[in-house]
Write a protein that binds this DNA or RNA. Structure first.
Lengths: 216, 216
DNA sequence: AGCTAATGTTTTCCCTGTAAACATTGGGAG
DNA sequence: CTCCCAATGTTTACAGGGAAAACATTAGCT
């Protein structure tokens, strides 16, 4: 950490003769990320990754305690990305309710774009998320995005203020997480209706959030 | 299928001398189910199950195409159980909104009681759920429970009827699924508040469903 | 009694995760 | 400049697991 690593990136497995890869950790994460979306975490093999990185089969263990460690790092990366996207979706000048909706859509889109990663973030693979401090921290950050919006909404009176802010925030999160999961699993496509998929998703989000608004 | 199988259940791995187990499929499912909640689907091994059932290590392959097949069967079982519980929760004489809430609570309780199974039902392990007809069918059944309640509610005018029934039903499902998932992952415990866990969950459910009610 | 499909068994192969012990390197202290 | 150490990779080795193939046993119908 905190070292300048400028030694020939993308050396690939050819005979550069460098004993040290110089960038293994990140390379492994990138490769893992690619394969994750294709084959799921089960099929993901540290050995295969090492092979692909042109490195011995146990080298990865210098960077990750074990397979779970690698997966946890991937998940943490996912949370950070999710946070960035939901923040970016909120443009200046939006009303609070619209901010919430837009951030929610960004959240759902992230899940749809990286289904395996998203499932990893919540999935059974990461048994005890709280065991990995980096992961825990990243997760909290992404919750903070929602909480901030809710606080603004409650202060303004846009949202129903009979409930504690944390409860409202959890409700938002549940909603968005629920939609994301079902969407990933293709459940929206299963319902027998002629409403297009994305419309159904947006409608579900809107209908859910509507319960949070203050009654006039 | 459709055979009388009364030949000494619970023969255990002792020397009963019967070449044919007579009940292998169900025995494997039971054992798998037990281990699933302890160690997760990754650690679950067909060989270990076979050993425990007192049978050779490849015998399971006579009943399941592969490990995924076994897991899919488990998941299907889960859906059926979930359907039964959500139906049972609705007592006669309940108002529609209360039926929805009660069924939702039963759903969430099922998830909390069998976290690993629940995660399996939606998790990354079952890559393409729709690849297993039995699983697909079971899933549809459990959605039907929600849809039925929603239809009653719309007909009575209890629910907002500006939205199609399917959309409302999907919203319910998303809500309940979202809460269940987050609850399993202990996310309700993470929020910094002095509200007890179960109260927070019930509150979230109530707040979410409230958005579906018709505005007076 | 005898055939056939269903069910179990043995054997085998290759892959994976992971622990030890060893090799190589770059960078800082003297 | 030299020497040593900590970080990083390598080799080797072991204990499993999933799955295919060929073989054995049984139940039940004819």
């Amino acid at each position: 950490m905190s070292v300048s690593n400028e030694q020939e990136l993308s050396a690939e497995a050819s005979g550069s003769g460098t004993y040290h890869h110089g960038n293994l950790r990140e390379t492994l994460l990138e490769l893992a990320r690619k394969h994750l979306e294709d084959s799921g975490p089960d099929k993901l093999s540290l050995r295969a990754l090492a092979r692909e990185a042109g490195v011995s089969q146990t080298a990865p263990y210098r960077h990750f305690a074990d397979k779970q460690g690698l997966l946890a790092a991937l998940a943490a990366q996912g949370y950070l990305e999710l946070t960035r996207l939901t923040l970016a979706a909120q443009k200046a000048g939006m009303e609070t309710a619209e901010r919430l909706f837009t951030a929610g859509l960004a959240y759902i889109r992230f899940a749809s774009d990286h289904p395996a990663l998203y499932k990893l973030m919540f999935g059974p693979v990461i048994g005890q998320p709280m065991q990995f401090p980096e992961l825990k921290r990243a997760g909290e950050l992404s919750f903070q995005v929602i909480l901030d919006i809710v606080r603004d909404g409650v202060r303004e009176g846009t949202f129903d203020s009979n409930s504690p802010e944390e409860l409202i925030a959890m409700t938002c999160w549940s909603t968005v997480h629920g939609i994301s999961s079902l969407s990933i699993d293709g459940m929206f496509g299963c319902v027998d209706t002629n409403i297009p998929d994305t419309t159904l998703i947006e409608g579900t989000l809107r209908l859910s959030l509507q319960g949070l608004l203050a009654r006039t």
